[in-house]
Amino acid sequence: MSLINRREIPIAIGVAACTLVIASYFTDNASLASASGSLQLWGIIIAGFATLLGLFSYVAYNGRQIVKKRSVYSGVAVASALGTIAIGLALSPSSSQYSWLTSNILTPLSMSVGSFIGFFIVSAAFRTFRARSLEAGIVLAAAAMIMLKNMPVGEYLLPGVLPLGNWLNDIVSLGGNRGFTIAFAVGAIIAGVRQILGFERGRVAK
């Protein structure tokens, strides 16, 4: 097996990087801290390249769509992406032309697309949010209480809803929330330890 194909290499790199970053936190060794800092900077630079790889894949995919299906929309998507890149890099993202593009085209589009889920929440509330069991009833009651306490109309219509809603959020749901937070962190650490020990090969050594 050639050196390139050996799966031990990326695992060793990952284990070394992970161990170095953790070790630098628990010691006050200056050279270890400096090495960890450099490695973090490397991570930032590689992440930048990874973003470019994303564009590359996107343009390649849509390019095929344009050729195969003669899709106008794919053409518009690619042309607008390339146009934005040209303005942003040739001038500057802080230039007035780029600001015009982002504030007058990207901003309303971004906000409008984001509103979709707001609409879908209404139909989900109507069609699926039903008290079929005790658990579903608890979810439903808690959701309604939090929504009522979050809006001034709720305080106006039901004067006791604010303290009750705050109590629900700050005390009653805190236990479940905190339990979740700790369980999530334990899970993340276990995944990390598996990475250090070379058991976690999903991302680097398929």
Binding site: L41, I44, I45, G48, F49, T51, L52, G54, L55, Y58, Y73, S74, V76, A77, V78, A79, S80, A81, L82, G83, T84, I85, G88, L89, P93, Y98, L101, T102, I105, L106, L109, S110, S112, V113
Partner: peptide, 25 residues
């Protein structure tokens, strides 16, 4: 058409910012 514009400009912006980040760091 609006969807295509949104995807294109968003992606273009991400690339501009990523290139600037790469240049800077």
């Amino acid at each position: 058409m609006a969807e295509a514009l949104f995807v294109g400009i968003s992606l273009g912006n991400v690339v501009v910012m990523a290139v600037r980040s790469l240049q800077s760091s």
